[in-house]
Lab assay of single mutants.
Amino acid sequence: MSRESDVEAQQSHGSSACSQPHGSVTQSQGSSSQSQGISSSSTSTMPNSSQSSHSSSGTLSSLETVSTQELYSIPEDQEPEDQEPEEPTPAPWARLWALQDGFANLECVNDNYWFGRDKSCEYCFDEPLLKRTDKYRTYSKKHFRIFREVGPKNSYIAYIEDHSGNGTFVNTELVGKGKRRPLNNNSEIALSLSRNKVFVFFDLTVDDQSVYPKALRDEYIMSKTLGSGACGEVKLAFERKTCKKVAIKIISKRKFAIGSAREADPALNVETEIEILKKLNHPCIIKIKNFFDAEDYYIVLELMEGGELFDKVVGNKRLKEATCKLYFYQMLLAVQYLHENGIIHRDLKPENVLLSSQEEDCLIKITDFGHSKILGETSLMRTLCGTPTYLAPEVLVSVGTAGYNRAVDCWSLGVILFICLSGYPPFSEHRTQVSLKDQITSGKYNFIPEVWAEVSEKALDLVKKLLVVDPKARFTTEEALRHPWLQDEDMKRKFQDLLSEENESTALPQVL
Results as ranks from 00 to 15, higher is better:
Arg240Lys: 09
Asn196Gly: 15
Lys214Phe: 08
Val270Lys: 15
Cys18Tyr: 07
Tyr72Cys: 14
Lys119Arg: 10
Pro21Tyr: 09
Thr168Cys: 00
Asn269Val: 04
Lys142Cys: 10
Ser31Ile: 08
Lys179Asp: 05
Pro90Arg: 12
Glu161Val: 15
Glu122Lys: 15
Val150Gln: 02
Ser24Phe: 11
Trp97Phe: 15
Ala261Asp: 04
Asp6Val: 07
Ile146Phe: 11
Glu76Pro: 05
Ile251Ser: 03
Tyr212His: 12
Asp111Ala: 07
Glu70Met: 05
Leu60Trp: 08
Lys235Glu: 11
Lys131Gln: 04
Pro152Ala: 02
Trp97Met: 13
Val234Pro: 00
Thr45Ile: 09
Gln20Arg: 08
Ile160Phe: 00
Glu173Leu: 14
Asn171Thr: 09
Trp97Thr: 02
Thr225Val: 02
Ser2Leu: 10
Ser53Arg: 07
His13Ser: 09
Asp162Asn: 08
Pro85Cys: 13
Leu174Arg: 06
Arg181Leu: 03
Glu263Cys: 14
Ile146Lys: 00
Tyr136Arg: 05
Glu149Ala: 07
Val200Asp: 06
Ala237Gly: 11
Gly30Cys: 10
Thr45Pro: 09
Glu127Asn: 07
Ser73Asn: 13
Val234Thr: 07
Glu76Asp: 14
Thr172Cys: 13
Arg181Phe: 15
Thr43Leu: 11
Arg262His: 02
Gly167Leu: 00
Asn112Lys: 13
Asp82Ala: 12
Gln69Leu: 05
Asp118Trp: 15
Tyr139Ala: 02
Val25Trp: 14
Asp6Cys: 03
Ser28Lys: 06
Gly227Asp: 08
Trp97Glu: 02
Pro128Val: 11
Asp101Thr: 10
Leu226Trp: 11
Leu96Ile: 15
Asn112Asp: 09
Asp265Glu: 06
Lys244Asp: 09
Gln34His: 06
Arg148Ser: 11
Ser67Val: 08
Ser49Trp: 13
Val175Thr: 00
Asn196Lys: 13
Pro75Ser: 14
Asp265Trp: 00
Gly232Thr: 02
Glu107Met: 15
Glu79Tyr: 13
Val150Trp: 01
Glu107Ser: 09
Ser260Lys: 13
Ser5Met: 08
Ser5Phe: 01
Ser52Val: 06
Ala98Leu: 03
Lys135Ser: 07
Pro88Leu: 07
Trp114Phe: 13
Arg95Ile: 01
Gln51Met: 07
Glu173Asp: 12
Gln10Ile: 09
Arg180Ser: 15
Thr26Val: 07
Arg240Ser: 03
Arg3Ala: 15
Gly232Tyr: 00
Thr65Tyr: 03
Ser33Glu: 12
Ser252Phe: 08
Ile74Phe: 15
Glu86Arg: 06
Ala247Gly: 06
Val25Phe: 10
Glu4Gln: 14
Cys18Arg: 05
Tyr123Cys: 13
Leu99Tyr: 12
Leu268Ala: 11
Phe238Ser: 03
